[in-house]
Design a protein around this nucleic acid. Structure first.
Length: 463
RNA sequence: UCCUCAGUAGCUCAACGGUGGAGCACUCGGCUGUUAACCGAGGGGUUGCUGGUUCGAAACCAGCCUGGCGAGCCA
């Protein structure tokens, strides 16, 4: 008999009604009586378990009743509907085989565990309800991203993980080297000599694929990168990890407006896809992780995102009468408390803040005609904060070079980036989406460590 | 890096400066339809580490370690 997936049974119950099925999965709990018992089986294909009923006509009845939680088993039996019971159907077992035993000290109990504890058993936590739901959503969301961009003729680019460009000072970087750190060769000025290093120069793990993405946008017109990103920041928050995934679309012949339209469409698309394809998981999040999650997401899908310029946002914050820890004035970067106030109190939905002062933004952002602001946009969402950061890029070579000079950057290190402006440069724009932050926003999970399978944060790289 | 809270049984948590407990889990037994099954019994602890105060410290003090919340940095 070929193996049946529990998901198939839930989705097409009639097809299996009163038929023999063959299942394989892991025991979530056993409830045993003298002559019969029940097993909650999860086979990994579906969020919900299936109930197995077994009786003492099984030759290994006694052993089955002693299966420890976490055991891997195979089950053959008949699927019967149980419309009067709590579960919709169950399998009357004719055969149960132990595939891999478990032991009484299996850490996942039949009760609620704290997320902190579950982080310490990251190799097992995917078997729990919450994490099973989180990581299936993560998978679906990643697929939805590819689907969205593919349908719109974007080309998927694999930008390098190891990079020689000190990209835009987006953050502290992880050095990559094959030098013997216990025996470093220093040059005359006391600095490490990288000429004998693997790449013959200093290289790091990427903090962004954007610069390379711009190069490909000038060949394929619309591209996106989606992959791991590394930041060596000493951050201790629920929103930061040292290794996370970032999505970065880049479009030639596009301006800031096109950029925002794309970002809004994309976010709505991903949310809709997940709601449609993981209703059980989303229901679970709505009931146990964040009450009102589904209402919130449905509202997002069906409403326009807010838009406000930085200058107007400062004005609103100043006139709000709200007492902020960090005073608000034009020119300062928006603090978390300001962003939260805007998205959670003023707009109560995702809001694009645009046209920031040039001095608080990156060198590649396009200078506006006022000479003071740049064509940047951040998307702020309630609860999570900044989820997308993007801009129209500076395509005018002279202005870009002037800006790099002002910031004291070594233009020769960016020779190829500058050449993109020399050879058929275009008006172009793009953004970066923090993938984990998007997952947090969609699931209601409040810690980034709980939406990454094996999270890497300061001082922590177990598993 | 800063602020703040916490660390007691496998897990979640109690315990006035005076003999460290409960629920769940685990082990054994019972139970003919369970749903985090239920009922009964049992085992389980160097109270994060080091030092100090005290007749006496899980508790008070100092330092360190670990984890959480918030901030900065950012996605």
């Amino acid at each position: 008999m070929s193996m049946t997936l529990v998901k198939e049974i839930y989705r097409d119950t009639e097809k299996f009604k009163d038929k023999m099925v063959s299942l394989a999965g892991w025991v979530r709990t056993v409830r045993a009586s003298k002559r019969f018992g029940f097993i909650e089986l999860n086979d990994g294909s579906f969020f919900k378990n299936i109930q197995i009923v077994y009786e003492d006509n099984l030759d290994n009845f006694k052993e089955v009743s002693k299966f420890n939680v976490g055991s891997a088993i195979r089950v053959e039996g008949k699927l019967v509907l149980t419309p009067e019971a709590k579960q919709p159907f169950e399998v009357k077992a004719t055969k149960i085989v132990l595939e891999g035993s478990s032991t009484p000290d299996y850490p996942l109990q039949k009760k609620r565990h704290s997320f902190e504890f579950l982080r310490e058993i990251a190799h097992l936590r995917a078997r729990s309800n919450t994490f099973s739901a989180v990581f299936r959503i993560r998978s679906l969301a990643a697929y939805a991203i590819h689907k969205f961009f593919n349908e719109r003729n974007f080309v998927y680019v694999h930008t390098p993980i190891i990079t020689g460009s000190d990209a835009e000072g987006a953050g502290e970087m992880f050095r990559v080297t094959t030098l013997d750190l216990n025996n470093l060769v220093l040059d005359e000025s006391g600095k490490v000599d990288h000429s004998h290093d693997f790449f013959g120069k200093e290289v790091n793990l990427t903090v962004s694929g954007q610069l390379e993405g711009e190069a490909f946008a000038h060949a394929f017109r619309k591209i996106y990168t989606f992959g791991p990103t590394f930041r060596a920041e000493n951050s201790h928050t629920a929103r930061h990890a040292a290794e996370f995934w970032m999505l970065e679309p880049e479009m030639a012949f596009a301006d800031l407006e096109d950029n925002m339209v794309l970002a809004e469409e994309m976010l709505k698309y991903i949310i809709s896809y997940v709601l449609e394809n993981a209703p059980e998981e989303m229901e679970f999040f709505n009931n146990f992780i964040e009450k009102g999650l589904l209402d919130r997401l449905n509202l997002i899908v069906n409403s326009e995102f807010g838009r406000i310029t930085y200058t107007d946002a400062i004005d609103i914050l100043q006139k709000s009468g709200h007492e902020f820890e960090y005073p608000v004035e034009w020119g300062c970067d928006l603090q978390t408390e300001h962003e939260r106030y805007l998205s959670e109190k003023v707009f109560k939905k995702p809001v694009f803040v645009t046209d920031y002062p040039k001095d608080i933004k990156a060198f590649y952002m396009r200078l506006n005609d006022d000479g003071k602001t740049v064509a940047a946009m951040d998307l702020l969402v309630p609860g999570v904060g900044e989820i997308i950061g993007g801009s129209q890029r500076e395509e005018r070579l002279d202005i870009l070079e002037k800006r790099m000079d002002e910031m004291g950057m070594a233009k020769e290190d960016y020779w190829w980036y500058l050449e993109l402006r020399k050879y058929g440069g275009t008006k172009h724009a793009g953004y970066g989406l923090g993938f984990e932050r998007a997952i947090m926003y969609m699931t209601g999970m409040s810690n980034i460590r709980d939406v990454i399978p094996f999270p890497r944060t300061v001082g922590s790289a177990e598993f």
